[in-house]
Simulated scan of single mutants.
Amino acid sequence: MLVGYARVSTEDQDLTIQVDGLAAAGCEKVFSEKRSGTSTDRQALQACLEFVRDGDVLLVTRLDRFARSMADLHSMLSTLSERGVGFRCVDQAGVDTTTTHGKLLLGILGSVAEFETRLRAERQREGIDRAKANGVYKGKRATIDAQRVREMLADGANLRGD
């Protein structure tokens, strides 16, 4: 059985393109969710990994939709392999753990994806540091209304909630 997994990072993103691509590739069942790839709480992915059986092939549209890091990728692929489940990327032709060349390509692409993620994080950190040095970056906008807190304290509320 071909089983698909689709993921987007935020609620305002659309899963349609991924789900349609997986259906067109022949997936009989597709698990999908809107969760950050860095999240360790991807319930649809866990359900998908529990669902697949010996002889099944798990399909994703792209590698970055599936794994957070090389360690994460290798861990999940190892689990799938032990259970006799193959793995394929629809939009990254050649990434297919049911072939020797596909396994090689998977390792290379996984390393490149992790490298890109780390570069992106470094550039973001550099940009934030530069903005802070220029007095432009003030951090996350306050989510607490300071005036409301003062009013609550004046009305007898305390920080413990008693």
Score class of each variant (00 low, 15 high):
Gly94Glu: 00
Leu105Pro: 04
Lys29Gln: 12
Ala47Glu: 02
Ala121Thr: 02
Lys29Tyr: 04
Gly110Cys: 11
Thr117Arg: 13
Glu126Leu: 07
Lys138Asp: 06
Asp96Trp: 10
Arg65Asp: 00
Glu50His: 04
Cys89Glu: 10
Ala133His: 05
Met70Val: 09
Thr16Lys: 14
Glu114Ala: 04
Gly86Cys: 09
Arg62Leu: 00
Glu33Ile: 04
Ala146Gln: 03
Met76Cys: 09
Ala146Pro: 01
Val90Met: 06
Val90Thr: 10
Lys34Ser: 13
Leu22Gln: 08
Ala93Arg: 10
Met70Glu: 01
Gln13Asn: 12
Leu109Asn: 09
Ile17His: 08
Phe51Met: 05
Thr38Phe: 11
Tyr5Lys: 06
Gln147Ile: 00
Thr98Phe: 01
Ser9Trp: 05
Arg62Cys: 01
Ile108Asp: 05
Thr79Met: 15
Asp145Trp: 04
Asp12Trp: 12
Cys27Asn: 05
Asp41Glu: 15
Ala142His: 15
Met152Asn: 07
Asp54Ser: 15
Lys103His: 11
Leu73Gln: 05
Tyr5Phe: 12
Val3Gly: 10
Glu82Met: 06
Asp129Lys: 04
Ala113Val: 10
Ser81Phe: 11
Gln43Val: 11
Asp72Trp: 12
Glu50Arg: 02
Glu82Ile: 11
Val136Tyr: 03
Ser36Gly: 06
Tyr137Thr: 06
Leu119Ala: 12
Ala47Met: 05
Met76Asp: 01
Leu49Thr: 08
Asn158Glu: 06
Gly107Trp: 09
Gly161Lys: 05
Thr99Cys: 13
Glu116Thr: 04
Ala67Thr: 04
Gly161Phe: 12
Asp155Ala: 15
Cys48Trp: 01
Asn158His: 05
Ile108Ser: 09
Val3Arg: 03
Gln124Ala: 15
